[in-house]
Design a protein around this nucleic acid. Structure first.
Lengths: 233, 233
DNA sequence: CGCTTCAAAAAAGTCAGACTTGTATGTCAC
DNA sequence: GTGACATACAAGTCTGACTTTTTTGAAGCG
């Protein structure tokens, strides 16, 4: 996953990034470039490049005569795919997964509505195909195959929305769905009602019924929220 | 705006970033670090740091023996605040503003619903205050003051949702609202109906009525969509 | 005692040059 | 044409010296 070992600079990032996002360095902690370079056994040039990248993610801020200051989480670029991966890999995973699921619940229904208006015939076809793939793997503990189709289904919806911001959330949704299958709930076969909803969403998109596609997708994402016990008291 | 001139490296970014996001270098274009360093009259070290940052935004990819390759827009980290600013500053501005408005229309209603559940008394108070501020400046061409309260209102909603991903969209919403006031529509006083909706949202949040807060906010964002002619045929 | 002013130190920032490494590309033999 | 191999190119890395900014604190003064 990701892009491992694309240079020394990458290795430093893969160590420092997760450490910072995991909260190992409290906000306000001060690091020194030279010391870090020694610790990772790289030159200052390499270390400086890594720090620059962390700085662009607002994980740290670098100030003259002071050092490299770890920023509070409220400053982080939490939409940076790299940051998301680091956080999902750490102790913050459950909280992160919940945040992303809520985001999903906001975005996907609207995306589905737009998809009903803008989807190409090819996208409609793949959507139907994926929904059928979900049905075919919905029984008999074929969770992995089911997941493949599920992820693809939601990716098509996001792409077909025609909105670039939505489309770029495909990886996030994939991560959430995979996380649910692998680490959280869902030890049994998926909920048959959810499977049916996917088939119906594909129908609604194909028919260009935006309101119905949105409503049905909202039911799907509300199910996801309930699985994580995120709902009104 | 932003953080100008925080070093030579920053100046390079402020020039190259907008150029790439504006499409001045078609995807696949190959740049060479040495040549760029000469062009900007900086050392290779500085140029390398800048390239690393652009690479972390997926605006470029750097490959040995080839050079620095400009990536297609589909690869960009479009949620990076820096990238958003660069694109809003360029020719892509209208399209970008539309994308962000759609994103807003998906997120804000859900955020308002959550805010109704999680808002603190202080947040409820500020919400009401901001709504009143909007009313007070809704007539007599006080667009600037109106905007200040409008932006603050939506920021509170996003913060009060308790969802970190939503909260970080505050700047995006601010940008969209400011863009609308300064460059797009709205030469006249704001729509009275919209002002009333804000007051009612504040009410609903204060009363903890999540469903109503969500519905009312959806009406607000749908108004914003209509202003940009984004709607069903 | 409190204030300003100025000097020193510390760490990031910058630069220049030499060297290493991975990888396209072209050449040659088969 | 296909393969192995040599070559050159550009990114990658390292080092050491120098500059700049900013904090700190000490000296000097009211």
């Amino acid at each position: 996953m990701s892009t491992p070992g694309r240079g020394l600079h990458g290795h430093v990032l893969d160590t420092l990034g997760p450490a910072i996002t995991a909260g190992e360095y409290p906000p306000g902690s001060v690091l020194r470039t030279d010391e870090l370079a020694q610790r990772f056994d790289v030159s200052r040039s390499v270390m400086r490049e890594a720090v620059r990248v962390l700085e662009s993610m607002h994980l740290v801020a670098s100030r003259r005569r002071v050092g490299v200051i770890v920023q509070p989480a409220s400053e982080w670029n939490v939409y940076d795919p790299q940051v998301i991966r680091w956080r999902l890999a750490g102790a913050d995973r459950p909280r992160q997964l919940r945040s992303l699921t809520v985001l999903r619940s906001a975005v996907e229904p609207v995306a589905a509505g737009l998809a009903a208006r803008h989807a190409t015939p090819e996208q409609c076809a793949e959507l139907t195909e994926r929904a059928l793939g979900m049905v075919a793997n919905s029984r008999g503990h074929r969770l992995e195959q089911y997941l493949v189709h599920d992820v693809a289904f939601h990716r098509v919806i996001l792409d077909a929305s025609g909105n670039e911001m939505f489309a770029r959330l495909g990886d996030v949704v994939a991560e959430v769905l995979a996380g649910r299958t692998h680490h959280e709930v869902m030890f049994e076969d998926p909920d048959p009602a959810a499977v049916t909803l996917h088939v119906q969403v594909a129908e609604a998109v194909r028919e260009g019924d935006a309101a119905r596609a949105e409503k049905l997708t909202r039911e799907i994402t509300e199910g996801a929220l309930q699985e994580l016990d995120i709902l009104a008291p």
